[in-house]
Design a protein around this nucleic acid. Sequence first.
RNA 1: GCCGAAGUGGUGGAAUUGGUAGACACGCCGGACUCAAAAUCCGGUGCUCUCAACAAGCGUGUGGGUUCGAGUCCCACCUUCGGUACCA
Length: 928
Amino acid sequence: MERAHYRFAEIEEKWNSKWEESGLYTVLEDSSKPKYYVLDMFPYPSGSGLHVGHPLGYVASDIFARYKRLRGFNVLHPMGFDAFGLPAEQYAIETGQHPAVTTEKNIRYFREQLSRMGLSYDWNRSVITCDPDYYKWTQWIFMQLFGSWYNPASGKAESIDTLNTLLDTQGTRAFFQAGTCDKELSAAEWKALDHAGQEKIRMQFRLAYLDHADVWWCEALGTVLANDEVKDGVSERGGHPVEKIKMRQWFLRITAYAQRLLDGLDTVDFSPSMKEMQRNWIGRSEGALVHFPFAGKDLSLEIFTTRPDTIFGATFMVMAPEHPLVAEITAPDFRIDVEEYIKYVKTRSERDRQAEVKKVTGQNTGAFVIHPFTGNKLPVYIAEYVLSGYGTGAIMAVPGNDERDFAFAEKFDLPVVQVIDQSAYPDASREDKVGTLMQSDILNGKEVKDAIAFILHALEERKIGKRKVNYRMRDAGFSRQRYWGEPFPVVYENGVVKLLSEKELPVALPEMETFKPGGSGKSPLAALQDWMHYDGPSGKGERESDTMPGYAGSSWYFYRYMDVRNKTAFAAKEKIDYWRNVDLYIGGTEHAVGHLLYSRMWNKFLFDLGHVAEDEPFRKLVNQGMIQGISRFVYRVQGTNTYVSKGLKDQYAVTDIRILTALVDNDILDIEGLKKWRADFADAEFILENGKYFCGSEVEKMSKTKHNVVNPDEVIAQYGADCFRLYEMFLGPLDASKPWDTKGITGVQGFLKKLWRLFYDEQGNMRVQNDGNADAESMKILHKTIKKVGEDVEKLSFNTAVSACMICVNTLGSTACTQIDVLEKVLILIAPFAPYIAEELWSELGNAGSVHTAAWPAYDATWLVEDTCTYPVSINGKTRTTVDLPLDMPVDEIEKTVLALDAVLKWTEGKQPRKVIIVKGKIVNVVI
RNA sequence: GCCGAAGUGGUGGAAUUGGUAGACACGCCGGACUCAAAAUCCGGUGCUCUCAACAAGCGUGUGGGUUCGAGUCCCACCUUCGGUACCA
């Protein structure tokens, strides 16, 4: 191989196959080394392949994994594919290609792309969620969830058997009182129930259970739609009307874990903002349940409020339009209007209902409730701003202390009563919990905090209501009316659900010709009558036609990596005991409240049952930012095929048109390229500036339709994987979103060339020697860099680490350092970032082993000491001069020297300074 | 709307976490090498006034505040991005 130039293509191909042959990244359990588990959020293998945004996190985790290996850890660093999902199914409906086929093709392409990047995954441990050997265990975990309940007494999940024992001996009374069961039964009454009746009660406890819930139904498309597929109240495809309908569906009782999910956040290393998002999502609030009896009926309205102190300010009630009592309590004269309003609400998304605060809608039901303290009659309304899923689906409206209630009262001309005197708090808003109660009978004169405590006591004493901790989070919907997901391992016998036996796992997804919906909102599977009808070891009945959602397979995959081929368990106990949990998890913030909460819940559940070793799955979480694309625009003069350069576009009426980003270099358009790109530009005319056409640009999400996608394959082909990796990191901090502009890559390319040049001269002769004479400047920069890069990598501040490497190589170039000890250490520092070139040069120095199994160098602090220091001298905050002083000069000595400087005397005009500010032994400011 | 984040030169970003703003790169300008180009190397580059230098002034989204000192802390606002429960 010619040595004069850095030939990345040859080097990378050579080492890629050598590493694979030698199994360099194969990892086994090894109790002699500390373990470290570095995990990437696995990708959904979409049809368009990877773009330059995907590898950001993968490169970062790879650098960290390599660094940890150099530090002596046994590192588990796997990768797999989250392969079930909606896009593959939609593609199948459109093209008739089986999702399994397209998914497999996509995965192959993803793997090929990933393998070029020099990522040190142990591919032997790869998982694919749509593989029956994998989803067998997803189904198995579902069976455990179905067979378990959350025992509030022990604070953890237990087998449903312990619930049966409790019910047999005590009935449901205690659960009824706690609000977790809707029937109050004695032990005898419970025992008297038939199987179906008992199962109905047990359903209220199981961690995976059946219930009814809304889905978006589109009559015209004959299918259930995802929220994403509904825009502005109509289907995104075709613009057909949609409405919400109720369907029987599976749920996971994640709310049982609400408090533990909240508490667990204190034990993990997530960013404060990530914890905040999860806390807000869980949304714990302390308040009260209060019963307001309906006038003239033997019924009461149960409401939840966080402000029981304002109960005397309640002037009306608002129920969610979906509230089960609405039909029953509506007065005859109001029935038509109420039904009309409910129909309107059915077309509204939950987000719209909350988002449009300016638009106040609602409807009087004609019913009244009796205020339990005053005996006043209060009208009852329904309104979309009250959601059925939160609290009890009904509120007492206190317009004096709630903005939305106030807006509602104004619109419907309802009374507003001020019950809190906030005059002592002029800056407080209407909703702040401060002030003194007034017009509130027994609460008058009390501060809000005391009033809350007092009224809670009064409510409980009079049996009108009780304290209640409420969570905003709802149970997780676990059914999808889709084909491309895990089938449920259940059978319905006369409408009563029952698990299949473990021996029948996996319940394979049956083959299908077409993937069209199964009619009346059912999944495509409903059309497979042979499959739907079950007659096997577990009895006779109907199967479940719904499948599990995307998050089922992704909620536990990190355990399967520990023991991918296990046939008898999702992972062997001893492997889980070795690897325990994920030490560093890297992925996007978009999963903050979805995937990260579900997988934490599954983990806690598996932990309760003794299947895993740790209560939390992820010790440390780092969120990488999104890499955006730069969209380029040309400006067409309206009604012509003439395009005007950006600087002149204001003189015309123009339409902005996105063009292929690759056709633009440094804002200047390649006109010939554009003409060839698309036929409609073939005979376009251009109005130029200084003989050039300047394009506009905008930073946006990378997507095919915006023509701004940059494919890593092309970048790697042109610059090499090492260069690509370095540039991904050099772009900016890991957690920031930033646009990709390939132009800047020449900077890191130059760095790699300079690195090469440290080892080979222009004739290709090796320059490195072993004469033991590195000059002081080389030693200083080396040890400074070891310290800096080590600290930066620990902080995952890879952009600054790369900068430090650049400075180091530049400096060693100018000192003409050829000393082997120095250069070997530099190679180890660079190895995690640019594994190929480091390996090549390392082996060229005559090393037998791999640079990736070397030891991270230690720095020698004696080389980091400076003899003098430049002190800035500021006077009244402005830097007036600087002075060089020895580092070991005592502080009072420094002070004397500085105060004697001409520049200082000039500014103080001989006066004694008022104050001398010294920070870390430096005089930074002299105040006159 | 609600929850979370970000805003620093022409561009990506750095800043010891309250102490010399603009490290390191890209781009641009000038120079060397070359018949020429590419590549490479050297120098310059926040803005304003100035032929230029010195000096000065202004500068971290906007408006206030705290401080000897604010990109960093506090208050209000603007813009952009992520999530908002069936996209993954």
